[in-house]
Design a protein around this nucleic acid. Structure first.
Lengths: 109, 109
DNA sequence: TTCCTTTATCGTATAATTGCGATATAATTG
DNA sequence: CAATTATATCGCAATTATACGATAAAGGAA
């Protein structure tokens, strides 16, 4: 111990948790909001938009890339980031199903 | 340092990240899935359904409660948990807006 | 080539998370 | 009251996350 235990959980559960975890930090949410708004964005502009150092932003970008939510394309000395549409829609579907499978309305306890 | 920096982020960003973080663990996703399916559930049943110890499950329940996503009602010696409908719908709306404000379709990088 | 710009990675310090046994707390039962 | 059941909390160890300065790597410009 003590890393997160994964045995005994459904694949669907693990995948959803992984997406949520990747988005469970203000910097990473802000990066996604920026990429949604601007479609694509060079790393330096992302750094400028966040209240964190270049090194820290680079780490968060790596985390989002590792989770498959964004892509980075090298453009000369710069790197242009954008949303990975395929995985982003996949995540959207998972999240949608999670919230829409609804208990609906009553608070039974 | 080094706790998460919160200054310089929009309230909306912080709130969304907080929800995502609360759901960023397989056990907590599994608990929510269980509560969605069964409407309400006694703590002991949740413990039985997860591959974790009673102490650990209790911690995860406390985290979800702290995030406002669930409520616990004392029922004799037992505690009955259910989803906090108000905050759950609020979270749903935030998430919906996040994913639906869409870049749509093209991968520009 | 040398210098500058841009980004990633390294090293490190600190904090938070995860997990569980042990124990405390509270209600119920006999 | 004593014993049992059900949860929460404590204490601890191990792991992971966060943040940033310093440095490396890679490309473009002079």
């Amino acid at each position: 111990m003590t890393a997160t235990k994964t045995e005994g959980f459904a694949t669907e559960t693990l995948e959803l948790a992984a997406v949520m975890k990747a988005l469970g930090h203000p910097a990473r949410v802000a990066i996604m909001q920026l990429l949604i708004e601007r479609q694509a964005c060079v790393c330096g502009s992302i750094v400028d938009a966040l209240p964190l150092s270049q090194a820290t932003v680079s780490q968060h970008l790596a985390a989002l890339k590792e989770a498959g939510l964004i892509q980075g394309n090298i453009d000369g000395p710069k790197v242009c980031y954008c949303i990975d549409q395929t995985n982003w829609q996949k995540a959207r579907d998972m999240v949608k199903q999670f919230w829409d499978t609804n208990t609906c309305c009553s608070s039974p306890c």
